[in-house]
Simulated scan of single mutants.
Amino acid sequence: MTTYVWGYLDEYAEEREDLLDAVDTVFRSGQLVWGPFLDSFEHDFARYHGAAHCVGVDNGTNAIVLALKALGIGPGDEVITVSNTAAPTVLAIDLVGAKPVFVDIDPETYLMDVTQVEAAITGRTRCLLPVHLYGQCVDMDPLLKLAADHDLVVLEDCAQSHGARYRGRIAGAMGDAGAFSFYPTKVLGAYGHAGATITSDAELDARMRRLRYYGMDEGRYYVMERGGQNSRLDQVHAEILRRKLTRLDAYIEARRAVAARYAEGLADTGLLLPRTVEHNEHSYYLYVVRHPERDRIIEAMKAYDVALNISYAWPVHTMTGFSDFGYGKGDLPHTEQAAEEIFSLPMFPSLKESRQAEIIDGLRKTMESL
C-alpha cells in the first residue's frame, strides 16, 4: 500500500540541508541504535511537554503497547476508549490481552463523549484511553476526576495532537502517560516509523525502558522480565525528530493559518466545518469537514485535481477483525453517522495560499452544484 504524504516534498525541499546533515552526523558517529542523539531527543521532547521523562520507541502503536504493559494492563482488564480512531489504538489494547470498551463520540468534535464514560466502568476497568483526535484534546478534567474516583490510570493517545492544548495544558502531560506517533504524516513527523511515550512517573519510565529493550535494563544484558520486546527508536530518527522539534511551533502556526483560510472561504457553503472547543488550542493535524453528500463531493473534486481523504470511513467496532469484541452496527450511533459523512481537506504547513484558494473555489462550485 502506498501512502501519499501531503506536503512531504515541499517540507523536504525546505529542510533538506538540515535533514541530510542530521543523517550524516549520526552515520559519522558510528552509533546507530543507542547513544547521545536518542538521549538528546528524549530530553528535549520531555522538556517541551513539561514532563520528566520520554521513552523513544519504534512506532506509535508500540508507544501505546509499552505504556499499557508498564501500567500493568493485561488479560482480563478493560480499557475504555473510542471507535472513531485509527485502528492501532484498539490493536494496542488487544495486543496486551485487554478488552477495549467503546463509548460514543461528541457529534460536533468527534472526540470521546466523556459523559458516557462512567456508565461504561465495570469492576474490570483499569484504564481510560482518550484519543486526542485530529489535533484537538478530549475534555480531560472530568475524565481525570473519574479516573481518580475509580482508581483508574489514564493513557492519552496523542498521535494526532502534537502541541495541542487543553485549558493551557499540553496534550500528553495530563494523564499518567501520553503516547505519540511520528509517522511521516503527523504534525511532528519522522521519515519513516517512530514513536515515544512521555510520563512524569519515574517507575513507569523505568518499566517502559526495560520493556522496549527485551525486558532488560540497559547495561544489564540477559537479566530480563517477561513481556519485553525490541522497540527502540533508532538514532537517525531521534536526531531528525530533535531538529524538527525546534520547528514544531512554527508547523502548528502554519497549520492554524491554513485552517483560518478554510474557515473564511467555506463559511457559507453548507459544509460543517471543524468546531474548536473554547478552552482548546487546536493543532490541526487534519481539517475534517462533514456533509451528507460526502461521496459525491469527493468524486466531484477530482475534476479540480484535489484528492480528499476520509478519517475514518470504518469505525473500529464495525471491522471484521474486531468482531469478537461484541459490538455491532447501531451500538455507537454518533460514531457511525460521522463515519458516513466526514472527510479531510488538504492540510499541511506548506500549502500555498494560491493552491488553497483553488481548493476552496472548487469546493464552493461543487457545493453549489449539489
Rank of each mutant, 00 (worst) to 15 (best):
V223C: 00
D106Q: 00
I170Q: 08
R294S: 01
K145Q: 15
Y304S: 11
V288T: 14
A51K: 13
W34M: 05
M112F: 06
D361P: 13
E17S: 15
V57S: 10
R294H: 01
E17T: 15
Y221A: 00
T197S: 15
G74C: 06
E239Q: 08
L32D: 05
R212N: 05
G362L: 01
K69L: 14
E108K: 06
T366L: 02
K145T: 15
S200E: 10
N280W: 00
C158K: 06
K302M: 14
E340K: 11
M112D: 13
D205R: 09
L71G: 12
P88D: 01
S344P: 03
S200Q: 07
A86Y: 10
A92E: 08
T115F: 00
D205Y: 13
A13W: 06
A267Y: 09
T246C: 01
D149F: 00
L129K: 02
H317G: 06
G228F: 04
L129G: 06
R220Y: 14
L20F: 15
V154K: 03
T366E: 11
L351I: 07
C127P: 11
D151Q: 13
Y287S: 12
G328P: 02
L66S: 12
T25H: 11
T25P: 14
T109E: 10
L273T: 04
A263F: 00
Y327V: 02
L143Y: 03
Y312T: 15
V90R: 07
K302Y: 04
A51V: 08
L204T: 05
D205L: 00
D249P: 05
L273G: 04
A147T: 08
